[in-house]
């Protein structure tokens, strides 16, 4: 019997197959996100914002109102929407360059203010859409188009540990986690908890998603998963970094 792949209800059939490369982590991340939205039944009041970089390819991905913004600016557009209409559930979806480099001030300040939005940041360790340059998340020694001899931390600086920083600067009430597309069920649970955090009004929620980019990593399927699960996850530990103290599940 053929296995019917489950398509999340909140996905838009008309825009499938999606625009990402085969083996890209975005598809898995967005599937986990779609299922989380389905589980919470919030499709009709969720607003999705995507950035510049490969995340923009999600501009028509969902059966949800969507705005594609500028590089790094999805965070302010989305908290602008939330402030203007607090009834909406607002998701800002971006890459590591958008969140940690050009839009870092927005992420930091939105987190510190405890804006009631959910930021989902896909970390695939480099700038993908522009053709594989070094990103804030590129690993030490990792080769990219702008670190052809490998990232030398003495000249190119150290990578950014985003969730660790966000966990540190947010007040109680925030939810911060790092998931991976290699464990999509765990990632899905994190996204549900992140969105619940917004729904309950507890505070800011942030999920970094470790993801694959075979196109720019220049890796075959086996190498892709091995790099993600061994090298990347080794450098960036997966797990929940901050759970609201007032979280009933945590109290149990």
């Amino acid at each position: 019997m053929a296995v019917e792949p489950v398509m999340p209800k909140s996905w838009r059939l008309e825009s499938k197959p999606h625009k990402f490369c085969p083996g890209c982590g975005h598809g898995i991340a967005l599937k986990a996100l779609g299922l989380a939205i389905d589980e919470l039944g919030i499709q009709d009041r969720t607003v999705f914002g995507c950035d510049i970089g490969c995340s923009l390819l999600a501009w028509d991905f969902f059966n949800m109102d969507t705005v594609q913004t500028h590089h790094g600016r999805t965070t302010p557009v989305i908290y602008g929407v939330k402030r203007a209409n607090p009834e909406l559930i607002c998701i800002a979806y971006m890459g590591d360059g958008g969140g940690y480099a050009i839009g870092a001030q927005h992420l930091v300040n939105a987190a510190a203010r405890n804006e009631l939005i959910t930021v989902v940041l896909v970390n695939n360790t480099q700038y993908a859409m522009t053709g594989g340059q070094m990103a804030p998340t590129t690993l030490p020694g990792q080769k990219t188009e702008t670190t052809p001899y490998g990232r030398d931390v003495l000249t190119a600086g150290y990578p950014m540990r985003g969730p660790e920083m966000i966990a540190e600067i947010t007040p109680d009430g925030a939810y911060v986690a790092r998931g991976t597309v290699a464990r999509s069920r765990q990632l899905g649970n994190m996204l549900v908890r992140a969105l619940e955090n917004q729904l309950s009004g507890r505070g800011f929620s942030f999920v970094e998603v470790l993801a694959t980019c075979p196109t720019n990593w220049r890796t075959n399927a086996q190498q892709t998963w091995s790099f993600l699960e061994n090298t990347v996850e080794n450098y960036y530990p997966v797990g929940e970094l901050k759970i609201p103290l007032s979280d009933p599940e945590e109290e149990m």
Partner: peptide, 15 residues
């Protein structure tokens, strides 16, 4: 930048 983009957000929300 944020003031401007957040204003776009406000307008997108219909305000």
């Amino acid at each position: 930048l944020s003031a401007g983009f957040a204003t776009l957000g406000g307008v997108l929300a219909g305000r």
